[in-house]
Amino acid sequence: MGSMKRRFCTTESLEIDEPLAGTGNHPVRNLLISWPRSKWTRSARRASDMSDAVSGLLDRLAKQGLRVNLIDRREDREKSHRIFLMPENQSYRVLPEQLPAFLEQLLAGAQEPGEPLNHPLLLCCTHGQKDRCCAKFGFQAYKALAESAQQEALPFSVWESSHLGGCRLAASAVVMPSMRKYGRISPEHALPLLQSELKGRPYLPCLRGEAELSSLQQVARIAAMEALAATAPDAELEILSEETLAGERECATAWLVLRWRVGETEGFLRVKCREEELIRFDTCADVDAEEAKPARVWRAVDVADCEAPA
């Protein structure tokens, strides 16, 4: 008898037409520490050869509100750790024996200024110890992103990253400091995504959302950007109003009005969004255990020009 075909939470998510838009939430405060991927454990901030002292300090920093991720790229493996702080946009090189003291200073808010970053960071989740989708889809995307940046001499620093959230949306990535989050990145998306980010534009085919916005606001902004893509791709967008009403079976409907502006030209869009319930697998572990769970998502159902609000 042949073996059963392995299922992946990413393909399960696609099969139920789960939207990418609205899943871009991510902490704005980030601490990134280079560590060989072979040493990562299931935790996003733990390595198998990490000392108890360092692990404890990272836990304390996480309790202060810092998102801690391990990152790696083979060409940058040195005796020292590369450390990045966001949104401070600071870079450090710290020897392993100096790492506990550095983290203590960080806890106390007394760390010295580092080197300012003059190019964006792109983190692509390859955390196979956490979820097999991040190994299968994430590493392919990482290689394509890193190779595209190198071959085209694009000013990006591309790193493998531990868990970024949303394993079912692999391959996942986040660009810093813009804090735009992406999902379902295939190798063919790599170059256009980098080129779009280089122009300061989000890459719409894979955009999950902007971290500082609510899920509903992310959905509305992405719908507005898609509506303007052909005529005003560089438009600045501002959410002016938001109204939400409960509906059948407690699924809500929302209307958001956004102003778009390009130079002296402006206009207004009204985006209608509807909440719906999906039964989904969040991770491959859920798929294996057949433990699908209900989840509420927003979906844009209409975008229309409108008058300026009173």
Results as ranks from 00 to 15, higher is better:
Leu213His: 12
Val175Asp: 03
Pro177Met: 07
Arg168Gln: 11
Ser196Lys: 07
Gly166Gln: 06
Pro192Lys: 10
Val158Ile: 15
Val158Tyr: 08
Arg208His: 08
Ile185Ser: 07
Leu198Gly: 00
Tyr203Asn: 04
Tyr203Glu: 08
Arg221Pro: 00
Tyr203Gly: 04
Lys199Asn: 11
Ser196Val: 05
Gly200Asn: 06
Cys206Met: 00
Ser178Thr: 14
Pro205Ile: 11
Pro192Asp: 08
Pro202Trp: 02
His163Leu: 07
Phe156Pro: 06
Trp159Asp: 01
Cys167Glu: 15
Val175Ser: 14
His163Lys: 08
Pro155His: 14
Gly183Val: 05
Leu207Gln: 03
Ala211Asn: 02
Ser172Arg: 12
Leu207His: 06
Ala190Ser: 14
Pro202Ala: 10
Leu194Ser: 09
Gly183Leu: 06
Pro177Glu: 05
Ala190Trp: 09
Met176Asp: 03
Tyr182Pro: 07
Glu188Met: 11
Pro155Met: 13
Gly166Tyr: 03
Val175Gly: 01
Ala220Thr: 13
Arg184Gly: 07
Gly209Ile: 03
Val175Met: 12
Val158Cys: 13
Tyr182Ala: 07
Leu164Tyr: 10
Glu188Phe: 12
Ser215Asp: 13
Ser196Asn: 13
Gly200Ser: 05
Pro177Ala: 05
Leu198Tyr: 07
Gln195Tyr: 00
Tyr203Phe: 14
Tyr203Ala: 03
Ser161Leu: 06
Ser196Pro: 07
Leu198Ser: 10
Leu216Met: 07
Leu194Glu: 10
Ala190Val: 10
Val174Ser: 02
Ser178Gln: 15
Leu204His: 06
Leu216Gln: 05
Ala170Phe: 13
Ser157Gln: 14
Arg221Asp: 02
Leu164Gly: 05
His163Phe: 05
Arg201Ala: 08
Val175Phe: 03
Gly209Ala: 09
Gly200Glu: 02
Ala220Gln: 03
Ala190Tyr: 10
Leu207Arg: 01
Pro155Lys: 13
Arg221Val: 09
Met179Ala: 14
Val219Leu: 08
Ser172Tyr: 01
Val174Thr: 14
Ala170Gln: 09
Ser186Cys: 09
Phe156Glu: 05
Met179Leu: 15
Gly200Trp: 03
Ser215Arg: 06
Arg180Asn: 10
Arg201Phe: 01
Glu160Gln: 15
Met179Glu: 12
Arg168Thr: 06
Ser157Val: 00
Met176Pro: 01
Ile185Tyr: 08
Glu160Asp: 00
Met179Pro: 00
Gly200Val: 02
Cys167Met: 12
Arg168His: 13
Gln195Gly: 00
Gln218Arg: 02
Pro202Gln: 04
Arg168Val: 04
Leu194Asn: 10
Gly165His: 12
Ser178Ile: 11
Leu194His: 09
Val158Thr: 09
Gly183Ala: 09
Arg180Ala: 00
Ala190Thr: 11
Ala173Glu: 02
Glu197Leu: 15
Trp159Arg: 04
His189Gly: 02
Leu169Cys: 02
Glu188Arg: 14
Leu164Trp: 10
Gly209Leu: 05
Glu212Ser: 14
Pro192Gln: 10
Leu191Asp: 11
His189Thr: 01
Ser215Glu: 13
Met179Arg: 14
Leu216His: 04
Pro202Tyr: 02
Pro187His: 13
Ala220Asn: 04
Gln217Trp: 01
Met179His: 15
Glu160Cys: 14
Arg201Asp: 05
